[in-house]
């Protein structure tokens, strides 16, 4: 389905072959191809523009390698730049000095928050911790049931507030009491699942902000669907302004999305992507690998390793 970008670039770069250097003139046309590839991968319009300009700058003046084609060489330059923007040091979750470590999880509707919370609980259980899940999604039909079912699978308790079998619609209270519960029951991690919300829904954004101020989490994570398109920048920015999250979780990476949203988000909020969620099963959670993501966005197979050897 996806043509390799480097092949596409070959055509545009014919002129470079046999020349000593990549210069302004011979890459101009290529930059359009690159921008197009980024847009097709769902990188935001503005971000793609800036990124292309950076690549152009990085490429200009480079000696043309004789052992690889110019298309491959440029793809490699782009891959490196992309990896740099996406990456940095891998950052995990910072543990609180005095337990419990409180982790707040937020994001748009259906992005994969509840599943991620259970995955994270499983991850911590494996490391010997004792997580407690807080059911702060008090709105979505059967959200608490869903969390309880998943939590059962990983042997983690769930804190929720019900009155006569009815869910009490007070997300802040659930989060707050869950922290106390953890203290009282010697659980060293609290993971707060929240309802999906639109970044422009003022009441709901206020709610998550209130949860944050009330429980003062050690870590706030923003879960985003890796299939997200151009709007990723708006939601990432707005959530960041409201809850100043510490990291991003990219979900549903087990599909064939190119995942350009990762680059967009990284560029506009400059927060590390900490985890990748790669399936419905609870063991499908991995650290985020910037270089793999870069290759995926570019859809370029093994060009990089090839050029690396050259």
């Amino acid at each position: 389905m996806f043509e390799g970008l480097s092949q596409k670039l070959e055509g545009a770069l014919q002129s470079v072959t046999g020349q000593g250097r990549i210069d302004e003139v011979n890459v101009a046309e290529t930059m359009r191809e690159i921008r197009r590839a980024l847009l097709n991968a769902d990188v935001n319009y503005q971000v793609a523009k800036e990124f292309t300009a950076n690549v152009k700058e990085a490429a200009t003046g480079e000696d043309v390698l004789t052992s690889v084609t110019p298309g491959e060489q440029l793809t490699k330059i782009m891959h490196d730049e992309l990896t740099r923007v996406l990456g940095g040091e891998h950052e995990g979750i910072e543990m609180a000095e005095t337990p419990p470590t409180v982790i707040l999880v937020a994001g748009l509707q259906g992005s994969g928050k509840t599943t991620f919370c259970a995955k994270l609980a499983r991850h911590f259980r494996k490391e010997g911790h004792a997580p407690l899940l807080a059911a702060s999604d008090v709105y979505r039909p059967a959200a608490v049931d869903q969390l309880k079912t998943l939590a059962d699978q990983v042997n983690a308790p769930v804190y929720s507030i019900e009155d006569d079998g009815e869910i009490v619609e007070d997300a802040v209270r659930v989060a707050n009491e869950a922290v106390t519960e953890a203290q009282n029951t010697a659980r060293d991690i609290v993971i707060i699942d929240t309802a999906g919300r639109m970044h422009i829904d003022e009441a709901m954004m206020q709610e998550v902000e209130d949860i944050k101020t009330t429980v003062a989490p050690n870590e706030t994570l923003f879960v985003v669907d890796s299939m997200t398109g151009q709007d990723a920048v708006n939601t990432a920015k707005e959530f960041n302004e409201r809850i100043d999250y510490d990291g991003v979780v990219l979900s549903k990476l087990d599909g064939d999305t190119r995942g350009g949203a990762a680059l967009s988000i990284r560029t506009v909020v400059n927060k590390p992507i900490k985890f990748a969620s790669t399936g419905e099963k609870l063991d499908a959670l991995t650290p985020f690998y910037p270089d793999r993501m870069a290759q995926r966005i570019l859809g370029m197979g093994d060009v990089v390793s090839f050029v690396e050897r050259a």
Binding site: Q230, T257, G260
Partner: peptide, 11 residues
Amino acid sequence: LDASTGQNALR
């Protein structure tokens, strides 16, 4: 289809 989905919706 989710309105926030990008080009993957075609796939």
